[in-house]
Simulated scan of single mutants.
Amino acid sequence: MSDLTLAPPPPDLLAGASLFLDFDGTLVEIADSPDAVEVAARVPALLQRLARALDGRVAIVTGRPVAEVRALLAPAAWPVAGSHGLEIAQVDGTVTAPDRPPALDAVLDAARALARSHPGLLVEDKPFGVGLHYRRAPEAGEEAAALADDLAAAHDLVVQHGKMVVELRVKGRDKGAAVDLLMAEPARRDTRPVFMGDDVTDEAGFRAAHALGGAGVLVGAPRDTAAGYRVDDVAAALAWLDTLSPAQEAR
């Protein structure tokens, strides 16, 4: 883990790199609910420019389902590792994913029962997980976390904490595993990974990038992290990505 005085990423960090981008809190501002997020018009255009500059080596790595990210960024398409890497979608729309375990239905019922007693607590039904968002009901955070722990133990699931959310998800992969899988593909194999993200769920991506000779870029306030660089917020992240140099464009 690093100290809390990380420098901003250098202008040439993406030279010869493969770029992996978290979505919420990195490319778009976090909203009160997942379906309230707004994608600025500049974001798809920026991603297209980055993909051209990096010979297509740009991928989204997110906790959101693949289908949601594809819809939010339509009509353009990029490789997406969704559901914390459990879903891998290629540009042509091919998606590889495991079967959804029936246990998630019981988890979903229990989460909705808790939400009925806490107005504002939002239950998110994902293909391979269930999220309890307590941004609108912060008093329910401890109870949501305790329920998640109990359900994870009962159904052999993973508990994932994020910004005002606790999620139960299927075991097997995280964002670091997604980076490893995508970096094994021929187009990326001889490049360095750069992973940009804001949340604790992105730490696995930072660690994987570092292990493969690349780097992580934290988006947000200073904290203990495996990232090697930091920018202040979404606006700063987009501004840095937008400074791709002509030399890099020519690669």
Rank of each mutant, 00 (worst) to 15 (best):
A7H: 09
P10I: 00
P11M: 05
D12A: 10
A15T: 14
G16Q: 09
L19Q: 08
L21G: 13
D22M: 01
T26G: 04
T26Q: 00
T26S: 06
V28R: 04
I30P: 02
D32N: 11
S33I: 06
A41L: 11
R42Y: 12
L46M: 12
L47V: 15
L47H: 13
R57L: 10
V61I: 06
V61P: 01
R64C: 10
V66K: 01
A67W: 07
L73T: 03
P75W: 09
P75Y: 09
W78V: 08
V80S: 09
G82L: 05
L86M: 13
L86V: 08
L86S: 09
E87V: 00
A89M: 14
Q90N: 13
V91K: 11
G93M: 08
V95M: 03
A97G: 13
P101S: 11
L104A: 05
S117D: 09
P119T: 15
L122H: 04
V123F: 07
V123Q: 08
E124A: 07
D125V: 13
K126V: 12
P127F: 02
G131C: 07
A137I: 01
A137R: 02
A137L: 02
A140H: 02
E142H: 14
E142F: 12
A144K: 05
A145H: 11
A152E: 05
D156S: 10
V159D: 07
G162F: 01
K163T: 12
M164Y: 06
E167T: 13
R169E: 00
K171C: 10
G172C: 10
G172I: 12
G172Q: 07
G172L: 04
R173P: 00
D174A: 08
K175R: 05
G176M: 03
A178M: 01
D180M: 14
L181H: 13
L181F: 09
L182H: 08
A184N: 09
P186F: 03
R188F: 14
D190H: 06
D190Y: 05
P193H: 13
V194R: 05
D199S: 11
V200S: 14
D202R: 01
A204W: 02
A204I: 09
R207W: 03
A208W: 03
A209G: 15
G213S: 00
G214C: 02
L218E: 03
P222F: 12
D224G: 13
A226E: 14
Y229Q: 14
Y229P: 15
Y229D: 15
V231H: 08
D232M: 12
D232A: 15
A236L: 04
A237Y: 02
A237F: 02
W240K: 04
W240R: 07
T243M: 15
P246M: 07
A247S: 11
E249Q: 15
